[in-house]
Amino acid sequence: MARILLVEDNEMNRDMLTRRLQRKGHEVAIAVDGEEGLAMVARHRPDLILMDMSLPVISGWDATRRLKQDPDLASIPVIALTAHAMAQDREKALAAGCDDYDTKPVELTRLLEKIDKLLIRP
């Protein structure tokens, strides 16, 4: 299975999603803000990043933008997670370079499908 980095500042949501992904066989690393997230990506080179958008220190938008500007890291797929369910959020996420987008509350099956789709991508 995949090595996933979950960048999420809300403790409960972080704990919950980590455990759910682990149950499905994924290896999960966590970061609590955008800055730590960027550091973790550089250090661990995960297969995929789940990025909450409203993060402290460096927001999910900015963190993603920086990742996608780094040729070394740009190929790591990023799925944006946001509690905003607005049309412009999705466009904003895609514009920032996110490979996909999902809303909270997370529907696990749907999220897993998106993860799988991005992982098998050539």
Binding site: N13, A83, P105, L108
Partner: peptide
Amino acid sequence: HDLRTPINAIKGYGEM
């Protein structure tokens, strides 16, 4: 956004 964050936790833990 504020309301959806706790709902996310409730749903996730609940499903687990």
